[in-house]
Computed example of a mutant assay.
Amino acid sequence: MCAIAIQQKQYETYILTNEQAQSRLEVVPERGAIITHWSLQEHEILYLDSDRFADPNLSVRGGIPLLFPICGNLPNNTYTHKGQQYQLKQHGFARDLPWKVTESSEATKNPVSLTLVLDSNDQTRSVYPFDFQLAFTYQLKDNTLEIQQRYTNHSNDPMPFSSGLHPYFLTSDKTQLEFEIPASEYQDQITKEIHQFSGSFDLSRDELDLVFRQITERSASVTDKGRTFKIALGYSDLYSTLVFWTVKGKNFYCLEPWSAPRNALNTGEHLSELPPGGSYEASFSITVNFL
């Protein structure tokens, strides 16, 4: 039995359930269409800082924020387009704005799914001078969460953008994590040093912010021996970059697919560009396998 329910918490929350798989997903359209919770067989997969989430003036730290039209930050939060400067804060605006639910699957259908849309408006055009539509479909099937995406340019000019997802995974002991990331090196975004990657990091540091630019496969995984499951990520060709981020003393880690590295709107590195009237579809999946 699959179902979609709506609960009025602090925000209107859509709850997708798949009873057979013992899977439950919570989505908050008003806060950037964020997935706040995903539980599977009574195991919470995602981390959420509930205090930050309760304050609408703070960015959400937890769940799966959506990044658009940039990933990461820009120098002085500034980029230039056609000789004019614009201001965009870190990770763009999609994670902060309200999205609209446009479609949901039948209550008994497997997979159960929910589609949300963000359209450009005066607020977005003031910092990003394009007309667009984003449509994201969250699909819950067995032990997999799939996020299907469609990016559409309604402008008369080509539309440059980058996009990403920022899942926060809950963990009880970071020393019990084992990584399979399809890259041989990474850059430390704090020190700017480049290091060879052999499958592990120094997780005792106060903060790790690592970018893998030369990924060779469309999948990556983390085995959490402490929680006895493996998280496998799958991502389509849009995504060129993986970012690992964690903070000492917090029981989360992030492994994030980005379509381009930070500052791509200025440098053009791996920047996507949609022609007028064009659309692009992409996908991202998280599969949890218990050990």
Rank of each mutant, 00 (worst) to 15 (best):
T246I: 03
K192S: 04
R213Q: 15
P276V: 15
T191D: 09
L203I: 15
K192G: 00
L265G: 14
L238I: 13
D206N: 08
W245D: 05
K250S: 08
N251R: 07
F212A: 04
L210C: 10
L210F: 09
K192R: 13
Y239K: 11
S236F: 09
R213S: 12
T191N: 07
S198Q: 01
Y235V: 09
S219C: 02
L274K: 03
D224F: 00
K192N: 09
E217S: 11
S204I: 08
F201P: 06
E217A: 13
K248S: 15
N266Q: 07
P257M: 10
L233Y: 10
Y253V: 03
E207C: 12
V211W: 02
V247G: 00
Y239F: 15
E256M: 06
E217N: 11
N266K: 05
E269S: 12
L265I: 11
Q214S: 10
P261Y: 08
Y253S: 00
D206E: 10
A264Q: 12
I231L: 08
R227K: 11
N251I: 08
L274A: 04
E269P: 10
V247T: 05
D206Y: 00
N263M: 09
L242T: 06
T228C: 10
A232N: 04
S236N: 11
I231F: 00
S240P: 11
V243M: 01
S240C: 14
T246Q: 03
T246S: 07
G226A: 06
V222G: 01
Q189F: 02
T246V: 04
S221R: 09
K250H: 13
N266S: 11
V222F: 00
F229C: 06
L274M: 05
Q214F: 04
S272L: 13
F201C: 05
S240M: 13
R205Q: 15
S272M: 13
R262S: 15
Q189E: 10
Q196N: 10
E269T: 14
K230N: 14
Q189Y: 01
